[in-house]
Amino acid sequence: MAYVDAITQGILLGGLYALFAAGLSLIFGVMRLVNIAHGDFIVLGAYIALVTVQTTGLHPFLSLIVVVPLMAGLGYAIQRWLLNRTLGPNLLPPILVTFGLAVVIENSLLMLFSTDNRRLAVGAIETASLSLGPISVGWLPVSTFLVAVALIAGLELLFYRTAMGRAFRATSDDSEIARAMGVNTRHVHSIAMAISFSVIAIAGVLLAARSNFDPFSGPARLIFGFEAVIIGGLGSLWGTLAGGIVLGVAQALGAQISPQMQFLAGHLVFFLILAVRPRGLFPRMD
């Protein structure tokens, strides 16, 4: 019974991991960029929500109307005026810049907020649960999972059914010809980053509502998101959900064995996938 419960919790946790992964996958899909500071921006989003809630008294979920535009603007600016100039045949510069950003964010948050654990109090939904037969699941994890599904469906639509999505894919295929076809690729990159940052903002608030966070919570979030991307398969947004679920379940089952095994089990599944199915479970990108 404990295992059924663990698997259910793991699946729901997978929704949160899919949110970490979706933003990462999106920008890799559009511009082959890996944002090492992805997790730190998630945590930054959580702190911005915290400050918003403290200063305005808004409900944490309502704080998203502040946090999402703020983060989207930040993402646009960082891409447009910082990262775009590092994109090129050499892979190192963008990694190094986002690596630098990660360290700057972590330590700035540390100086501003100390190492104290923080959390967003979201009220009754924190403890409310619903019974599914013999097991009971919390409303918060369930809502997180549903938000993840809705967001991924939305991103799929955007990517494959809209003019902006066409520009994303064309830029990804051949940015030189995309420019000759009138696509402003620097703007397209920045819009993609802004969307990634909007997902980051939502993920940050949901993370902060369900668990404690501190200035150094980011790297682990990056790693979970990354593992979900690789397990799910590169370039596939639904794959990130599958990857998130596999990772969440692996961690939940690992935690049943011992506390240390929680994260190690996730890493082991990641390495296992790399060994037997290096393109992930549902690859789309070639």
């Binding site: 890799f28 082959r32 960029l33 890996v34 090492i36 892979l91 963008p94 990694i95 790297p219 990056l222 790693i223 990354f226 593992e227 991307v229 690789i230 590169l234 011992s258 240390q260 095994m261 994260f263 190690l264 890493h267 082991l268 990641f270 390495f271 790399l274 290096p278």
Partner: peptide, 24 residues
């Protein structure tokens, strides 16, 4: 086997795993 920049994060996961093994 990890493409491009994903190699970077992969090395990080490897390091985390090694640390977890020794801590365990």
């Amino acid at each position: 086997r990890l493409v491009g920049a994903y190699f970077a994060i992969g090395t990080w996961v490897a390091a985390e795993s090694v640390a977890l093994v020794f801590a365990g």
